[in-house]
């Protein structure tokens, strides 16, 4: 781990990420995760349940958000806790471009047991899509 725990400060921001979500990504995620719910692939089904269009799997958004932490820390296994609330869906239009989500992270707590709490943010089209997103990272 190249990060020096002693040098960290509460309020410090982690490098953010901007990631595209396309229909192809949703199909790949459905196959790898086993979550074949049609609202993530079929716009007729999505619209029939009142959604504006096909939406991303909340767990795909969660899986991508943590990269802010794991890219920063290097070894993803130093994440000891991770939780999110899926507040809004990421709507993914079938236009080859899809949706763009901006992910960010900020240190909100530094603990005596050498753990750090990071609050994550995920914003799509100006709307927060993950709430109460937090990860705890343990330093050796």
């Amino acid at each position: 781990m190249s990060i020096d725990f002693e040098q960290l400060n509460v309020g410090e921001e982690l490098p953010g990420l901007e990631l595209q979500f396309t229909r192809a990504d949703l199909i790949a995620y459905a196959n790898a995760s086993g979550d074949q719910n049609p609202i993530h692939q079929d716009e007729i089904v999505a619209k029939s349940v009142g959604l504006p269009d096909v939406i991303s799997h909340g767990m795909l958004t969660m899986g991508r958000a943590i990269r802010v932490v794991t890219d920063w820390v290097g070894d993803p296994t130093s994440v000891v806790e991770y939780s999110v609330r899926m507040t809004r869906p990421v709507v993914v239009p079938d236009d080859g471009k899809g949706a763009t989500v901006k992910f960010g992270g900020k240190i909100t707590q530094i603990n005596a047991n050498r753990t750090v709490q990071i609050e994550l943010s995920a914003v799509c089209d100006g709307t927060t899509v993950l709430g109460q997103a937090k990860a705890i990272v343990a330093f050796k």
Binding site: S33, G63, R64, R67, T77
Partner: peptide
């Protein structure tokens, strides 16, 4: 590897 690829994460640990 398939799961990491599906979330688009190329961290070599996976």
């Amino acid at each position: 590897a398939a799961f990491a690829q599906a979330i688009g994460d190329d961290n070599p640990i996976y």
